[in-house]
Write a protein that binds this DNA or RNA. Structure first.
Lengths: 135, 135
DNA sequence: GTATCTGCAAAACATTTGCCCTTTG
DNA sequence: CAAAGGGCAAATGTTTTGCAGATAC
């Protein structure tokens, strides 16, 4: 059996910060957010607690091809759009039925059970397009 | 204008290795593959060349939430399925029309242009299911 | 010949871990 | 008070980079 998890002010605050943030943020950004309230908090502890929150299914860790992980509080399932020009990461929603059709294809054709998905579309976002980016 | 790219035996071999490999492999694995032919090749140079090949659009870099990047030669577009139990990464194909419907929804609803996608489904693969994994 | 490529080793970087003290229950 | 959490600093592991010599064109 695993380790028992107790309450912790720091971990609580980390979750709150994530839930009240609209963007996908780095561990280091969270660390800076916590410092006013917990002046002696350590970055290592932010990482430790993020790992716990991810294990608990309360937070998603996102790679996005960069070498820095981003974190977001778990909400309704959604996909991500990453702009290759400006780097912006935006949530996108795709109708449930389209999502289900893709996943049931995978079940049917391959026999795998899909429990979660991490989908990122890359391209040029609306704002960059408006700026006349052609590529 | 960028830097001119010359031919290089090592980079050529790296691409061949990727093209003849069915799996998604690490830089370090490629490094080991090259050593018989280029005994003094360096891991740093493998990384340098992988970056060039990715820039040239010949190779995909895949994060998969792990802290090690995986590489694959570029072929037809496809998605990935990652087994959370055994870590296996498998290519999955989804009918073109379903892919296009998802992407045109993003264009229509958000105004972004989708040029590529990196899609990973997570779950339990067929083999692990057969082994009686319940989760 | 000159710009690019390479090997080597060191640097950079995010993330993890060990140790010992503090807090929680 | 026993077990989990935190701070600190060192360790880890992957990827990048600076430099001097080798290679491509």
């Amino acid at each position: 059996m695993g380790v028992k998890i107790r309450k912790s002010k720091q971990r609580n605050r980390i979750l709150e910060v994530l839930q009240s943030s609209r963007n996908h943020v780095t561990a280091n950004w969270i660390y800076d957010e916590l410092r006013p309230e917990f002046p002696s908090v350590s970055l290592g502890n932010v990482y430790r607690n993020l790992n716990i929150l991810v294990d608990q299914g309360l937070v998603n860790r996102l790679g996005f091809g960069s070498n820095v992980d981003l974190y977001e509080a778990v909400r309704e399932p959604h996909y991500h759009f990453v702009c290759d020009r400006c780097g912006a990461v935006e949530d996108v929603r795709v109708p449930e039925d389209l999502q289900h059709r893709v996943e049931s294809r995978i079940s049917r054709d391959y026999g795998h059970v899909v429990t979660s998905k991490s989908v990122e579309f890359h391209g040029i976002c609306r704002a960059c397009r408006a700026d006349g980016v052609t590529m």
